[in-house]
Simulated scan of single mutants.
Amino acid sequence: MRTGAAVLAIVSLGFLLSACRNDTAQTAPPQVKPSLLSQEPLVPVLPPLPETTTAPVPSATASPSPSGFSEQYVTYCAGRPTSAQVIAAVRKVRANLPAGNGVSVQKEPVCSGVWQYTVLNVTGSEPLQVITKGSPNALTVVTAGTAPCTVEVRATAPAAFLDAVDCADQ
């Protein structure tokens, strides 16, 4: 039996060698097809990416405004400005506001970019909706009243701010 197995192995080896024999006219090595049972994974070779000749242009809305708040959303101002700063700004343009505790905050300031929206309770009056603009130390009152959606606000305030103040539909 051993000789039969040896003869079979020699014949098989001969067939393998004759199949792999190179033609003498070829100079390139034979191409070997990868085996499905190969243990090394095939890694695709991708062409290199072309070099970028221009720098990417940053989005104008990606960075926050000088106030530190993005115009893409509305958030509580976190003390920038404080309610007291908003009340002081309103008192400069509305001399008829009650003194002392006659003015209080119903809704803390919310910010979007350099815009702020605050609702104040005023003794003997409807709530005062206040829209201010600018840095906390130099607030400008854009509007203060019961209808804050003025032409200026609708034309220049960020879209997220207009939604928060309910000016988008007017």
Rank of each mutant, 00 (worst) to 15 (best):
M1R: 12
M1G: 15
R2F: 14
T3L: 13
A9L: 15
S18R: 09
A19E: 11
A19Q: 11
Q26T: 12
P29S: 11
P30G: 13
Q31M: 10
Q39K: 11
E40I: 12
P44K: 13
V45I: 14
L46E: 11
P48Q: 11
P56I: 04
P56Q: 07
A60N: 06
P64A: 14
F69L: 02
S70P: 04
Y73C: 02
T75A: 15
A78R: 09
A78F: 08
A84I: 01
V86W: 01
V90L: 06
R91D: 00
K92C: 02
A95F: 06
N96V: 05
L97T: 03
G100C: 05
G102M: 04
S104H: 03
E108C: 00
S112I: 06
G113H: 05
V114R: 09
Y117I: 05
Y117K: 08
L120V: 05
L128R: 04
Q129M: 09
I131K: 02
T132Y: 02
K133M: 07
G134H: 04
N137M: 03
L139S: 05
V141T: 07
V142S: 01
A144K: 01
T146M: 05
T146I: 11
A147V: 02
P148N: 02
P148R: 01
V151C: 00
R154H: 03
A155H: 05
D163W: 00
V165G: 06
V165I: 14
D166M: 07
C167Y: 01
D169L: 12
